[in-house]
Write a protein that binds this DNA or RNA. Structure first.
Lengths: 233, 233
DNA sequence: ACATTTCTCTAGTGCCCGCTATAAAATGCA
DNA sequence: TGCATTTTATAGCGGGCACTAGAGAAATGT
């Protein structure tokens, strides 16, 4: 019972492709032609984006499968065939979110020359991203699994939040080592302060704060950093 | 149907006393002796505190009535008779929370001589309160109605959060008017920054930050304020 | 043509949700 | 001892939840 191997010894397909490599006949060697059976009647990426917006707006728990099938405009069996269960769909949504709406953090850390510049850019871009029209306000990773009765889901987003703070900390440590920040700098506390600012700004965005208001908050928050270079007071 | 008046013309009791004045025979003039019928078999305040802890830990939506009756150790009909419905119980819980665990904000604003001292005390006490053993971490008002599918409940806590920020702002404005802060001070932004810090620290507490870590964050956050008095930096 | 594969549609499954009807139990008052 | 009043425990209401069985529909292969 319940095996992954069929009666004839072949493997079961596990069709719902986990995000990328949407079934180009990988194992068989075939690459070109259409799959085999009846083609899907909806665009998977489009449906995924609709699911993303629903989860972003209402959170994991409060978004029912019935809500999802309505906004994705597909039937429940199609959803389960294409994405697995609700939790798998959410995990895929989080992955897509991190690679698109949430990518500004990694990008700033990678591209800016100093930790301070990276954090300044992160806070400024957060103010814009969290209040952008056309999608829900705030950060999905911060809010979508709050008060979740599935502990694994809540923990998975918690891990993402703490990973961002760890990334801030290591970036700050690098600057301290390079002499761009004073040796007495408390990198962990500075990183956690940055994380708290981002999460607080996200909550503020959900509570109605405008982009300009969040930018003012970000500017105030940046005044904790040691002064370097020019400045207009 | 569904009237507040019984067949004999008398009024229905609507017994579940809304928080205070637990039925001392108000209308009849009687004050001393026991009510009339079968006495309640549980302590209302104790049960309310248990409900508070459950809502604090899991949030409004994820705490089911079945959860509540279990932790309060009463049957569902007793819960409904004593507290109304789930939403009324939650509102009463929020009120109790604000008068106890959450009262440190109002107290600091009322007792400290300056806005800066008040905010400093608020942040320091938040670091302690949000990580205190014996109850869930973080702030109930910040988290318990996140992703709530009952908009009124979500809005009611949002209003409380924004009211706190408004209180910060007016306290800061008072200091500006009194000359304790520079005239160019952006009171709204400073207040919102404080709100974001509190909410961010609350999220950090939920994500596992310790009291010491939050105190370090609070200390960093306080460095945005114009320097007054002595300082060892 | 015909079997094979895969997706879609209908219509559910069992479970838990918030909530309540009912009657028994426990009190005060006559 | 009744009788009125209130709370209790039992048991269940309709409804929404995540999820799926089964049959038909639409593409492929040979």
């Amino acid at each position: 019972m319940h095996s992954m191997v069929n009666d004839d010894g072949t493997m079961k397909a596990e069709s719902h492709g986990t995000a990328q490599a949407e079934r180009p006949g990988a194992a068989t060697g075939k690459v070109k032609g259409r799959p085999r059976g009846r083609p899907r009647s909806f665009d998977r990426e489009t449906a995924l984006e609709k699911a993303l917006l629903a989860f972003w707006l209402h959170g994991y728990e409060a978004t029912s499968v019935s809500d999802l099938t309505r906004v994705m405009d597909i039937g429940a069996p199609s959803l389960y065939a294409a994405f697995g269960d609700k939790r798998s769909l959410f995990e895929e949504v989080v992955q897509v979110y991190g690679a698109t709406y949430g990518s500004f953090i990694d990008r700033a850390l990678a591209e800016e020359p100093t930790a301070r510049a990276a954090v300044e850019r992160v806070l400024r871009e957060a103010a814009a991203a969290y209040t952008e029209p056309g999608h829900p306000h705030g950060c999905l990773v911060v809010h979508a699994a709050a008060n979740c009765s599935t502990p694994e889901v809540e923990q998975s987003l918690r891990d993402r939040r703490n990973a961002d703070i760890a990334a801030f900390e290591s970036r700050i440590r690098a600057d301290v080592a390079a002499g761009a920040l004073p040796p007495v700098t408390d990198a962990a506390a500075l990183a956690r302060h940055t994380g708290a600012m981002i999460q607080g700004m996200s909550q503020q965005a959900r509570d109605g704060a405008s982009r300009e208001e969040l930018e003012a908050v970000a500017e105030i928050a940046m005044s904790i950093w040691p002064r370097t270079g020019t400045h207009t007071g």
